[in-house]
Design a binder for these strands. Structure first.
Lengths: 232, 232
DNA sequence: TGACAAATGTCATCGACTGACATTACATTA
DNA sequence: TAATGTAATGTCAGTCGATGACATTTGTCA
């Protein structure tokens, strides 16, 4: 196996040349099988987590449901947490890329907001992601301290990427200018808050999360200066 | 034992009435012993973490150094992480209290900055805390992914407290007004950044962290609006 | 001193993970 | 088609963190 942790490892089965007798795929059954067991593991895991809770579900229960050895699980995922976090990774990557691709004349915060909207669309058309399952994963993470910690750490790990992109966009040196780090940290907080609101609210559409994010972004200024007795 | 996880559990030994023959303490030798083993565990643990790294140090190594059973360790600390986080707890509590005690006419951000300064002083005169050991703990946390995750989660756990205090100070309802949550999240980010800068820098004085915090707080506005090509 | 309770020790067990090595399944090439 | 190399999986043993149950020690106080 090339590398643990890759969410979209398998490529689409390519049509084989010559006398193509078997439609479902070429001679690389390996890829298909790998893909298959990985998907099965994720499926089984989510179902069990949903039913019994994350930490009341043992890895061997997952692997028994799929009928592979426990060892195999850890060949696909670095840890139990890792399986869950794999859902989040795509979104983060999409955000970082979208941010880098944002027109340079946009101000940092503007670019950030735009990038976030884009990355949300990725959520819909994404590789493995239907929205409701992503939502349920977010809920799972948010309600499981272990996963919450892992998620926060992951966000933090990725922050440096954002710092670099922001600094580069604005042509400043992140080693001496604090603003990139500051904004990146705040973005992390915003994303987190938006996720929470979305997950706790009624509207399951991704647009609802976009709205939550924008709502927070709008209120930053008002939250940071003066007293709050005014608006709602 | 009353409860796991209490950082400053033991009370100062009270002078016993009657013929006080033994100066070092009254008849509550239990308290003293408890206090003693707890301190020993912390000491041994930090020394070993320092020497070998956090996750290359097994709990039984710590307990062997202190000569207690491994089980005892988990009667004092909920987990290995918990021992390390106990250092952070005091500071968080001090901050929350300082924030609540801040004069009501202060604006949220102003009060926050003031409370942070106060909580830093607690660090110096605090129950068990000399500055250099606190510093080394922060460094340890920052360089150990496991601990980093735990720390982030802990900060996040405590955020609700801050939200309540902020909301109450300003007389708004945190359930409908996003600003308390938003500011609390940003404070968390600021504290984290300040800790990092302090820990990475040369100046070991707590004032250096205060300066870092203020530096970030000052730049918030500038980081959130316009392009950055201007100041350093 | 005796009795009660707190602190500790001991033992068994679970669950996450890892390394080493054997086995199976696929792919490729002669 | 058979031989062969390699990727994927299985098996096994072991470490480490953590927890429950129960026995034992050790202060405390009447």
């Amino acid at each position: 196996m090339s590398q643990i942790t890759s969410p979209a490892a398998a490529s689409a089965p390519s049509a084989s040349p010559g006398q193509a007798r078997e439609v479902p795929g070429g001679p690389d059954r390996r890829q298909r099988k790998k893909r298959r067991t990985r998907d099965d593991l994720v499926q089984a895991a989510l179902a069990l987590f949903e039913a019994k809770g994350y930490d009341r579900t043992a890895v061997h229960e997952i692997t028994e449901a799929v009928d592979v050895s426990e060892r195999t699980f850890f060949r696909y995922f670095a840890s139990k947490e890792d399986l869950v976090l794999s859902f989040v990774r795509d979104g983060m990557t999409a955000f970082a890329e979208a941010l880098a691709a944002r027109p340079p004349q946009e101000e940092p915060l503007t670019a950030t907001r735009g990038a976030f909207q884009i990355s949300l669309r990725h959520l819909v058309g994404g590789t493995a992601g239907d929205v409701p399952s992503y939502l349920s994963v977010i809920r799972l993470i948010d309600s499981t301290p272990t996963l919450l910690a892992a998620h926060l750490r992951y966000i933090h790990e990725r922050e440096d990427e954002v710092v670099r992109v922001l600094a580069q966009r604005e042509g400043v040196d992140p080693a001496i200018d604090r603003r990139p780090r500051l904004l990146a940290a705040m973005i992390g907080a915003l994303v987190f808050l938006a996720n929470r609101d979305w997950q706790a609210g009624d509207n399951q559409e991704p647009e609802a999360m976009a709205a939550a994010f924008d709502g927070y972004a709008d209120e930053i200024a008002s939250a940071l200066s003066g007293h709050w007795t005014a608006a709602r």
